[in-house]
């Protein structure tokens, strides 16, 4: 009945869509597709799974893996060795020749080399280990220049080590270099004694104060790691206290100016007790003071 009437009815209805109802299967599939879990799995899980499977199958072969790895390494090398990244020479500013030579010897790679292969931080740390270098600044300038800006330490004083070597120290007491001959740096004063390197600052202050005595000054000796002896020529010593050493030194200088103290036959000026400055005369002076002739045969210092 319905089939016979369909043509006539279709004029008043949509002629294509006679029965819009979905079939039971279509309805169920539609509902399945609207289930969030199924949807998420199909949209994300399935493609991810397929991708993982494809990649896994491709990489299963050992030869392909090595080929891939070598290709990658080759690509990386190609990129790093492009002329834009190459360092052709090293320029060192602010360093003396021996230090510059040392820095050149320290460069871990042979120039020209790719800038990727130069680890600036490590290289900077290596250079900073040189005693003569106070600070160093490294950078790669455009044009493939490795620029090294070095600030050297300046020697402020010489230190006679307990083993007898002569070391140059800077104002902070840091070693600069070893000196082979005292004459090479006649302008610097000498200090001696165990641990004198840690007290360079005090020594420099004392030396500045002792400028009136400079022509006669031979050096400073740290005694017991705590106080200084000022050693003059003719084996004269000025024993300074641990505290107020500068005041004691000024005292001696004033005495010298007023009384010509150090020009006399004095071996030791002992300022360790500031209530009781003491001097020790030489034996000859004592003898002449007592009216005796000096026994020239006696061993000096007995």
């Amino acid at each position: 009945m319905w089939a016979l009437r369909r043509d006539r009815q279709a004029r008043w209805q949509d002629p294509v869509r006679i029965d819009p109802a979905p079939s039971r299967l279509a309805y169920r599939l539609d509902r399945l597709w609207l289930t969030p879990l199924v949807r998420r799995f199909t949209r994300v899980g399935l493609p991810a799974l397929a991708l993982a499977l494809a990649v896994g199958l491709y990489l299963k072969d050992e030869g392909r893996r090595t080929h891939l790895a070598s290709g990658f390494a080759h690509l990386k090398q190609d990129l790093q060795e492009r002329p834009e990244f190459m360092v052709t020479f090293m320029r060192i500013d602010g360093a003396s020749d021996p230090v510059a030579a040392g820095i050149r010897a320290m460069l871990p790679v042979e120039l020209p080399a790719s800038s990727f292969r130069i680890d600036l931080e490590t290289f900077r740390a290596t250079i900073a280990q040189i005693d003569a270098v106070a600070s160093v600044d490294l950078r790669i300038r455009p044009g493939g220049v490795l620029q090294v800006d070095v600030t050297e330490r300046t020697a402020a004083i010489l230190w006679r080590t307990p083993t007898g070597r002569l070391e140059m120290l800077d104002a902070e007491g840091h070693r600069v270099a070893t000196l082979t001959a005292r004459e090479a740096r006649a302008d610097l004063a000498v200090i001696a004694g165990d641990g004198a390197a840690e007290h360079v600052q005090e020594a420099l202050t004392l030396l500045a104060q002792a400028r009136p005595l400079a022509p006669r000054l031979r050096g400073l000796v740290l005694v017991g790691g705590r106080r200084w002896d000022l050693v003059l020529d003719r084996d004269q010593r000025i024993l300074l206290p641990e505290a107020n050493a500068i005041a004691a030194l000024n005292h001696v200088i004033e005495l010298d100016r007023a009384e010509d103290l150090l020009a006399r036959d004095v071996t030791v000026v002992d300022m360790r007790n500031d209530y009781r400055p003491t001097i020790r005369l030489s034996e000859a002076a004592i003898a002449s003071l007592r009216g005796e002739t000096v026994d020239e045969t006696r061993v000096n210092g007995q």
């Binding site: 029965d19 819009p20 109802a21 979905p22 039971r24 309805y27 539609d30 509902r31 609207l34």
Partner: peptide, 13 residues
């Protein structure tokens, strides 16, 4: 049943 299915499916869509 078919009519209900049609309506429900369209609303779900």
């Amino acid at each position: 049943e078919r009519a209900i299915r049609t309506a429900v499916q369209a609303a779900q869509k």
